[in-house]
């Protein structure tokens, strides 16, 4: 018997939970404003920075040191006569990349690790979580420095094509490779709650493989809290890179990041305040924006606020 299939026009479009959450997020003015701000920052740092009229951030001009903001250098120049505006743009690239790449790495490791731990349960879970506990106990800063050195050596050749990013990428991975611990814990707890639900029993009854049950049925239902946490992780990683750079173990000269600019600015605090204030403003506004967006996402993805 042939069954008449519904045509495209007859189908009613469904609205996924993600789409509902997006609709709720759109009503949150502060979160939307923050998202626009982050978008604007990304455009300025990555696209505007490529335009021809932007000065080379590393070009020194010792005759024009500490020039206050003017038509030539809209944000002035630093102690070596380099254009501050272009240094902020290129520094922003590094800071943003740290935030996004390290968070991406952390998400990947954290969700996979936490999901497997939570789903396996029993002894496997206990061992995997004790590993996390142990890593928690080791000072993050020390580990990142060690890991960065370990990664940077052998990877030097492979990373050459990245040009000025070559010696920065190991830092991204080092931060990400250690920042997943909390994400693993969050995901594990979520998975443990979801795996008791009846739709997982139904999937088991269909004889689906464990991998399919875990990554198709369970993990997609745990992503909400992980996404919220990840959004809040981005600024904390940016901040962490800033403190590493401040200590002199992060980004190396002549590259800049917002952390380095703030550090350099702090050296001339008493005479050239704008060298601290301007990068600090970019930095803190971006961090605020990420935090507001994270808060907005948390409200939008909140289960209690969703339909029934």
């Amino acid at each position: 018997m042939r069954i008449s299939l519904p045509t495209e026009s007859e189908l009613e479009k469904g609205s996924s939970l993600g789409r509902d959450a997006w609709a709720r997020l759109r009503k949150n003015k502060l979160a939307m404003l923050s998202m626009c701000f982050i978008g604007l920052m990304l455009i300025i740092c990555f696209i505007v920075a490529q335009l021809p009229f932007i000065d080379d951030p590393n070009e020194q001009n010792l005759e024009n040191r500490f020039a206050p903001p003017s038509g030539d250098h809209i944000m002035g120049t630093d102690q070596l006569g380099r254009d501050l505006f272009s240094r902020i743009l290129f520094g922003g690239q590094i800071s943003m990349l740290v935030g996004f790449i390290a968070t991406g790495v952390a998400l990947l490791i954290g969700i996979t690790y936490g999901a497997i731990s939570g789903y396996a349960g029993g002894r496997t879970d206990a061992i995997m979580m004790r590993v996390v506990d142990t890593l928690y106990a080791i000072p993050f800063l020390v580990l990142v420095i060690v890991l960065k050195v370990v990664i940077a050596g052998p990877m030097e050749e492979q990373l050459k094509w990245m040009g000025r990013f070559a010696n920065i990428v190991p830092l991204f991975f080092a931060i990400g490779a250690l920042g997943w611990l909390t994400l693993a814990r969050i995901t594990r707890t979520q998975v443990m709650a979801i795996k008791e639900q009846e739709f997982v029993e139904a999937a088991t009854s269909l004889g689906l493989s464990k991998m399919r049950i875990l990554f198709r049925h369970i993990v997609p239902n745990t992503l909400g809290p992980a996404i919220v946490y990840a959004t809040l992780t981005i600024p904390s990683f940016i901040l962490f890179e800033a403190s590493l750079s401040y200590l002199g173990v992060g980004i190396e000269a002549p590259n800049s990041s917002w952390g380095i600019l703030i550090k350099e600015g702090a050296d001339f605090l008493e005479t050239q305040l704008y060298l601290l204030i301007i990068p600090g403003l970019f930095f803190s506004l971006t961090l605020f924006a990420f935090n507001f967006l994270g808060d907005g996402l948390r409200d939008a993805l909140d289960v209690r606020a969703s339909k029934d």
Binding site: F199, L206, P220, N221
Partner: peptide
């Protein structure tokens, strides 16, 4: 696993027995 398809279950709570992320 290969025998499972011969017996299937209908659950009590239709709010928990369907994956909320699947059409």
């Amino acid at each position: 696993r290969s025998r499972r398809l011969d017996f299937q279950m209908i659950f009590q709570d239709p709010y928990a027995s369907l994956n909320p992320r699947m059409t």
